[in-house]
Every structure is written in structure tokens, then in C-alpha cells.
Design a protein around this nucleic acid. Structure first.
Lengths: 147, 147
DNA sequence: ATTAAATGTTTTGTGCGCTAATTAATTGAG
DNA sequence: CTCAATTAATTAGCGCACAAAACATTTAAT
């Protein structure tokens, strides 16, 4: 059998990720959000008032990647960034009233996308768990140089 | 049970994709390649001398995303972009000798990454296929407005 | 044959995502 | 207490990934 590009797991995951953000785009447009911004909001809906570093661990992105995302959300009035009083290096990122209010409107987004894709939850959970397994192993492998 | 951010399949796939390009980066560095550039090369190793549009379909990326990637590969001497004689709108993208030669050196990359992550092929194939299922359904859903 | 629609590529502008370097605040070792 | 490490956040620079617009070439319709 001739090898195909789609044989590669990396390409499959990469394409799936691109397809998801592509599919989310028109849905998120009504809220003037990108997928990354939406992800940050979801994280804050679960745990509010965290530092940028803590947030970056939650969403598994570099602090350097997150600063501009959070700034844009601040500009849209979704959250505030005030300096922590305990530790002035830290910024405390907290939802505003509008940011909190968006939670109710946006919770339909996930089911909207699932409906769009027509995925049922049976294999879905397995797929999700296997993705996390890949993430965990790659992260572990990347941090093995800690003497 | 309290809901967690990691319950979301979208987040899992998104994180897995980021983790993969992150893990590939140091491996690809020795070849002075990014993951996208590597993907384009892999596509050309399977089918050489294609138009940008054809290439964009192979790797599932916008032509607009691909133009700069291909240009950089051209600058590195990996491929050539000449105007098609049959249709002067088209560009024919073809590997150079160096581009073809890289195939031998880079074929170890995939196994190198798999070793790094310690993934065995049993569940791997399933994960891959389910990713493609998601991609297919999202793409189908996105193109349903064709009267 | 002329012109209108379609096709292939590039350009422009926005927003990631990463690394490396910078700045500022805190901690710790002497 | 002081000064060197550490930690938190930002900045700068690179390379995507996309949509929308611009441009040129080809095709199709009349």
C-alpha cells in the first residue's frame, strides 16, 4: 500500500485543530471572540481572579502568547488586569460583569459545534482522553532535562 | 463532578496540536524547518510538481497561508516555483535536488518523535482515524451552503 | 470576437504561538 | 542587611492561518 500524508498522526491532529478553529470562527464572530480568547474566558469561568502564569498553565500556552490575548479581552471590557497587592510582579486577571455574563450566552457554542459536526459522545470521550495522553507524554518528554 | 477545561474535546485537540509542533521544533531545527514547511515537503515527497492549489488541498491549508511557506522553502533552495506553461495562472511547485535529498535524512524524524512520546501504534491508528473523522465532518458541515 | 464569470495566486491586515531578551519585584545566601 | 538568583510579566521578532481584496489568466456565454 502506497503511503499517504494522512497516515501521519501529527498531520491528523494538526488538521483537526485547524478545522476546529475554522469551524468555531463564524460561531464566535457574533461575540467578537477568537478561539484563544474564548478558551481564556472558559478558563476564567471555572476559576476567576488568577495570575497570568496560572492562566497560562490552565490553557497550556506560553505567558508570552497570552499577554496580548488577555490585553485584547481587557480592551473589550471582558476582564480586568490589576497588579496583585501580595506580589507586585503578579497581575490578577478577573472577569468583569460583561465577561461573566457572556458565560450564559456562550455555553451553547459547544453544543452548536457538536451539532454542526454531528459527533456523538461515545467515541468522543475516548478521542479526548487519547489526545491528553499524547499531550502528557510530549510534555513529559520535553521536561526530562531537569537536573 | 465539577466540570474541567480538559473535558472539552476542542481544547484537547488544540493542546495536542500545539504540543506536537512544540515537540517537533527542536527536532526540525537541525534542518532549519518549521512544522508547516516540513509538512509541505512531505506532501511533495509523495507527489512532486503540483500547483499551489493542489498542494493546499493536500495539506488542508489556505492557498494564502501557503504562499509564504512555499516562498521560504524556495529561498532555502528546497523547491522551485515556475509558471505553468499550460496555464499561466498556475505555479508548478517542484522539489530541487536538495529538497529531494532531505527526504532520506528527515524520515527518521517521525520515529524520533514517536520514541520521544513513547506512543505505541495500537491506539495510535484509532486516534488518527477519529481525528480524520472530526475533520471530515467539520469540513462537510462548513460546505453545506452550496446551492 | 467581446465580455462576463470563474479560477489560481498573491497581498494586506488581524491574531496567534513560540523563543529570547528585558524589566521589575521577591527571595535567599552570606 | 546586601547583593545575587529567581520569578512574573512584557516586548520584539519570526512564522504561521485565516479572510477579504486585488490581480491576472482562462473559460464560457452571447
Amino acid at each position: 500500500m502506497k503511503p499517504k500524508l494522512s497516515d501521519n498522526l501529527c498531520f491528523a491532529i494538526y488538521s483537526a485543530s485547524n478545522a476546529i478553529t475554522r469551524a468555531y470562527r463564524p460561531l464566535l464572530e457574533q461575540f467578537d471572540l477568537t478561539y484563544s480568547q474564548y478558551l481564556v474566558l472558559q478558563s476564567l469561568w471555572l476559576e476567576d481572579g488568577v495570575s497570568l502564569k496560572s492562566l497560562s498553565e490552565q490553557v497550556m500556552l506560553d505567558p508570552g502568547s497570552l499577554t496580548p490575548v488577555v490585553k485584547r479581552l481587557e480592551a473589550k471590557g471582558m476582564l480586568s488586569r490589576r497588579i496583585s497587592e501580595q506580589d507586585e510582579r503578579r497581575k490578577v486577571i478577573a472577569l468583569t460583569e460583561s465577561g461573566r455574563a457572556l458565560k450564559q450566552q456562550a455555553c451553547q457554542l459547544k453544543s452548536q459545534l457538536e451539532a454542526k459536526a454531528g459527533i456523538e459522545s461515545a467515541q468522543l470521550d475516548q478521542l479526548r482522553d487519547q489526545c491528553w495522553m499524547v499531550v502528557e507524554r510530549l510534555n513529559r518528554a520535553g521536561n526530562e532535562g531537569d537536573a
